[in-house]
């Protein structure tokens, strides 16, 4: 492990939702190549605090790539330069000693900035509330093995269900579309017999809510899939389109 590395950071600072933000440049020293990207920011924040400067705010929680909280746009890419990881899984050995790194929040109309690098992603919650569920009350379930599900289908459902709701797909898209996020949930539930009953209504409601939230439209550039830390494939978008169209034609 190499110690004592330095980096120049250009970080988006914005006091609150109402204020205008700007880039500020910081120097961070004594970083070990084994540190994670967020630990590097911790080091800088400790220094800023000691100097009496407001630490940089960024969202994070599990630091294991599963909760979907971390959300940094690094050198023009959501979650940074490596494939299929979240920024909390990114390590400083990926960057060269002395490199300049630009850090921005997710940029999308539907994800307003709260402070610095922290954005509001509640639009995603509202999309799920619109229909991203199976209507079953507690206690009303039959035996778990009563309905066999072909393994291939269960696997596709699981591929889609792996979405962590981080919003990188939206940040990656030039139209800030949320299609991949919506498609992943619709696809998961459409692959399972339990989810079939409500599929039409679900597709309509979720797409409607997505539009209401101010996400852009999907023009099939597939940037979303390319940047998804969980490798969710854009084929789910095709399934969403099918679900949505059939629901339109038959309702």
């Amino acid at each position: 492990m190499e110690k004592g590395r330095s980096y120049t950071l250009k970080v988006w600072r914005q006091k609150n939702a109402a204020s205008r933000g700007e880039f500020k440049t910081y120097q961070v020293n004594d970083v070990s190549s084994g540190s994670s990207f967020l630990e590097m920011l911790d080091i800088l924040n400790e220094e800023l605090t000691k100097k009496g400067e407001d630490p940089i705010h960024f969202d994070h929680d599990c630091r294991e790539g599963i909760c979907g909280t971390c959300s940094l746009f690094i050198n023009g890419r959501p979650h940074g330069p490596e494939e299929e990881i979240t920024v909390c899984q990114l390590h400083m050995r990926t960057f060269q000693d002395g490199q300049t790194i630009t850090i921005e929040p997710w940029r999308a109309r539907a994800f307003p900035v709260i402070k610095d690098l922290v954005v509001d992603r509640s639009a995603f919650d509202r999309i799920i509330q619109a229909g991203g569920f199976i209507s079953v009350n507690t206690g009303a379930a039959p035996d778990a093995n009563a309905i066999p599900i072909a393994r291939e289908n269960a696997e596709v459902a699981m591929d889609a269900a792996a979405c962590i709701g981080c919003g990188a797909c939206v940040a990656a898209c030039k139209n800030a579309s949320a299609m991949l996020f919506v498609a992943a949930k619709i696809s998961q539930l459409a692959m399972l017999p339990q989810g079939k009953v409500e599929r039409k209504r679900r597709a309509q409601k979720m797409v409607e809510q997505m539009d209401k939230e101010g996400f852009g439209s999907c023009t099939n550039t597939y940037a979303c899939s390319a940047e998804c830390p969980k490798g969710i494939e854009f084929t789910h978008i095709a399934r969403l389109n099918r679900e949505y169209l059939t629901s339109k034609f038959t309702s």
Partner: peptide, 22 residues
């Protein structure tokens, strides 16, 4: 046991065998 039933009904994609059972 009720937990597993409940979760499957909600669409939790548990691992399955080739025969389609859990």
């Amino acid at each position: 046991n009720n937990i597993i039933d409940q979760c499957v009904a909600q669409g939790v994609p548990f691992a399955r065998e080739y025969g389609g059972l859990l």
